[in-house]
Design a protein around this nucleic acid. Sequence first.
DNA 1: GCCGTTTTCGGCCCGACTGTTTTCAGTCG
Length: 576
Amino acid sequence: MNEVDNQEIAAQFERIAELLEIQGENPFRVRAYRNAARTIQNLPRNLASMVAAGERLEELPTIGKDLAAKIREFVTTGSLRKLRELERAVPPGMRELLKVPGLGPKRLRVLRDELGIRDLAALERAAREGRVRQLPGFGEKSERKLLAELNELQRRARRFPWAEAEALATRLLAHLKTARGARRVEMAGSYRRLRDTVGDLDILVSATRDNAVMETFVAFERVERVLSKGRTRASVVLDNGLQVDLRVVPRASFGAAWHYFTGSKAHNIAVRVMGVRRGLKINEYGVFDQSGRRIAGSDESSLYAQVDLPWIPPELREKRGELEAAARGGLPRLIERADLRGDLHAHTTRSDGEDDLATLARAARALGHEYLAITEHSQHLRIAQGLSADALLAHCDAIDALNQNLDGLRLLKGVEVDILEDGALDLPDEVLARLDLCLGAIHSAFGLSRRRQTERLLRAMDNRWLDIIAHPTARLLGKRPACELDIERILESARQSGCALELNAQPLRLDLDDIHCRMAREHGVAIVISSDAHSARQLDNLRYGIAQARRGWLEAGDVLNCLSWDALRARLRRNR
DNA sequence: GCCGTTTTCGGCCCGACTGTTTTCAGTCG
């Protein structure tokens, strides 16, 4: 049951959209599939179970009669007739061609009809032989550009973890502030929305009429190539392949432009539609009434006010129900870094950490933590020098001893015990029972089937000494995909047993992700936000976790380590 | 293909930049 994942269904629709686009279909029809794919990706409920329960999928936004039928078809048969037909009709290489920047459906058709180009290799050949420049709508320049894009396709395709982009973003902001005439310089885009990864950086500058912002921008030392450069907009590629888009606007338009440039696109479009319904035009320069007079836009709040909404935090602007929530005054009071009172996941040199107990404790106290759980690996994880039962108990004695001399910080005795392939825990119950808390985690057999992986975690949660599942999907951004899991079953079981789930704040994990966090909140499952620090410096990972938690609509009340240790201890499963 | 407090048909966000054009189409965000 529920073997079909929402993401799979979304991928089917996205694929149909691509193929329809290549065929030159009505762009609005293409968009309908894309909109539906988005809705499904963001849906906090499993569509397969909705189908099984006979619920009306047509009630979902962007899902009409036709797409509801297609969802049912996919859930029950495991494939879509429409997609099979399209895949027969469109050569497989065309999809890659659509990803080449500068190639859209129209020019793609010309290439195919005039030169018979059906894949990247054929395009490269034709461009090298100078055949592309002879086509209508193409010229020498576009031919050269296409060749350059083909060269870079691999590098440009990757998304950058937010934390990796952060260093560049910080330097770029500082650089742009030195530009003549620059007044205000801000990050926008998915970076401002604090997404776990960013495809590019978007920067917004307000400046005086006579300014040198564009010149300063393209002179940034890490700029490798200028893609475009106009009076108000420019795009460059940095030497690591990261694209940066810059927009310069007058001060009176800053709020409208910041809103527009922050996105998400789906959120923006929805806001603009709300404006249209009120007889207003909303663009990056402001909110305009029917006479064309600007009535708002110097700051974001004034724009939202024109469509009768309060200001919406950027982390929520994903068209995941934030507009409806805002309209009824029901936006969450998002968790903040200062709400966290301690950290429940850290490693020392005793397993695979870089700093010893005392160093970690000092750093935690400097961060203002009331408590820090020491959670070494268990014996099964040899590569991380996991501890045997005896070694763990000895380590606990060391923690007790250090606690005697600590002022204002309490070290907790924990463990990150391996969840073995069959769901058993890697240490005996009588050892786990002697700890303050126990994390369990998957560090092997990531590739199990969805059913077996789910059962593995369910069985692990059968153990009453397991308080928290750490990094539940075991994903590593850009390196390892999330394990296949029936997250709804996991959440249901966690709710019943009182097991909490971790939002691991390592910048490459951020696991649970934003959507899973939101699902946990709606299921009434407690979350802990943990640094998983392997050094004193990494204790500060928590800020990445806070970002992800905010994207998941979490409030302080949803997160266990916003509690004092006494209150938190009472909430741990072992003490209930 | 979706959607509806002017509509069940005829709309569907809006503007900048580029290159190939002699006034605009295509692409992108």
